[in-house]
Simulated assay, not measured.
Amino acid sequence: MIEIDGSQGEGGGQILRSSLSLAICTQQPFRIVNIRANRDKPGLLRQHLTAVKAAAEICDAVVVGDEIGSRELTFKPGRLKGGSYSFAIGTAGSSTLVLQTVLPPLLTAAEESVVRITGGTHNRGSPPFDFLQRAFLPLVARMGARVELELRRYGFYPRGGGEIVARITPSALSELTLTERGEQVGAYAEAYVAALPIHIGQRELEVIGKRLHWSQDQLFIRGLSNDMGPGNAVTITVEHANVTEVFTGFGERGVRSEDVASGAVDEARGYLGSEAAVGEHLADQLLLPMALGQGGSFTTSVVTEHLRSNATIIETFMPKRVLVSESGGAFVVRVS
């Protein structure tokens, strides 16, 4: 049985999620201790427990330690099966992170799957729906994956109540080579506002327009139904010939709209000022599909602890190597 220390590297939930995905794909059981040891509230929170239960359901796994607050877990995968699944987090926990746990194995199942997840869709510290749909899934599709993703309802912290549905067709993944982003072909920003004053989004877009020198026709207010709120998020989408990146700021009680927007702008400007093809979050999340496929390489502007932790888990479960080198002001990440 593979033994994993959840306090290594970034010490968060990603170590657990990647372990669940890879355990199912490689049919290897594992035991993890010190789950989320580096977080303010260590152990399994609702969204992590939902990811565990979702992973267990798609492969009839035997699990020990699957309860709120647990810091140790044993997971013994059974036979993977596609089908129709519905997972409810019950809080505003990230539905996208639950999806990213079951997506890699379900791409290798014998039959198609439809996965419905309710919870948060735009959560601080998690990839929002827009990021998955515009940045991550198009690159996985380039590798050969056939995934359709639908947002049926927005969900913000603390209420949640969002809903996403994914239709996953079994697919073999080819090599991905992404070393240049190519010419910029589009750029726009959106401010989502639900059950809050509309001027919150307007102030966010004003900051983005001024700091990125964008025109008014690149800035969009997305007013949502009051029953989806209260909630606010702002996204900056930058489209290049070879890749699309999405940068997000999440509204929080007590945080000025201008500061929410500035955080997203800072991340976008950091990416645009580099020579890298992908930003730090996309870099981290491409590793698993590349390892499960035919590998490949990409350039990124930042090598985070999330990426290094993900690389370690991949090398623990698989005879693959994740190599990082520096070249021309960017980092080259190779999976082979």
Rank of each mutant, 00 (worst) to 15 (best):
V102W: 03
L323F: 10
D66A: 15
L323H: 14
R146K: 13
L107Y: 11
T96C: 08
L99S: 01
E245K: 04
R79K: 15
M143F: 02
P77D: 10
A61Y: 07
P158F: 14
R269W: 08
A261W: 10
F247N: 09
P230Q: 15
S86Q: 13
H199R: 13
C25Y: 12
V147T: 08
L106D: 02
I15K: 02
Q294L: 09
T50D: 02
S86G: 02
G328D: 15
G12I: 09
E305D: 15
R146V: 11
V246W: 14
V33A: 12
T91N: 01
D266A: 13
P127S: 11
E183G: 01
R153H: 05
V278Q: 06
R146G: 01
G83Y: 14
L307T: 04
A61C: 05
D284Q: 14
A141L: 01
L137P: 00
G295Q: 04
S297Y: 12
H48M: 07
E305C: 02
H240R: 03
S174K: 13
H122L: 02
G125F: 15
L139W: 03
R308F: 04
L292C: 11
V33E: 14
F156C: 07
L44S: 02
L219N: 05
T101V: 04
V303R: 05
L323C: 08
G201C: 09
G329A: 09
G229H: 14
V278N: 04
M1Q: 09
V260F: 07
Y192P: 00
A51I: 05
P170H: 06
L137W: 12
E112M: 05
G223D: 14
L103I: 03
L151P: 00
I15M: 07
R17Q: 10
N226L: 12
G162F: 08
G82N: 05
R167I: 01
E111A: 09
P319Q: 15
S7W: 10
T91R: 02
F75W: 03
T118N: 03
Q285G: 01
V333C: 07
P158M: 14
I32M: 07
G328A: 15
V243A: 03
G93N: 05
Y157T: 09
G254F: 13
G273P: 04
S70Q: 07
S126C: 11
I117D: 04
Q216G: 02
Y192Q: 06
Q27T: 03
E204D: 06
K53W: 07
G229Y: 14
V302A: 02
T316S: 10
V64N: 12
G182L: 10
A194P: 02
Q100P: 00
A61S: 07
S309K: 01
G329R: 08
A311H: 04
E57W: 11
E10T: 00
T237K: 06
P319D: 15
I15A: 08
G69R: 06
D259P: 00
N123Y: 05
D259L: 15
E150Y: 11
T26D: 03
F87H: 10
I89W: 01
P29D: 13
C59G: 03
L49D: 04
D227T: 11
L99I: 01
S257Q: 07
D60W: 08
V64F: 12
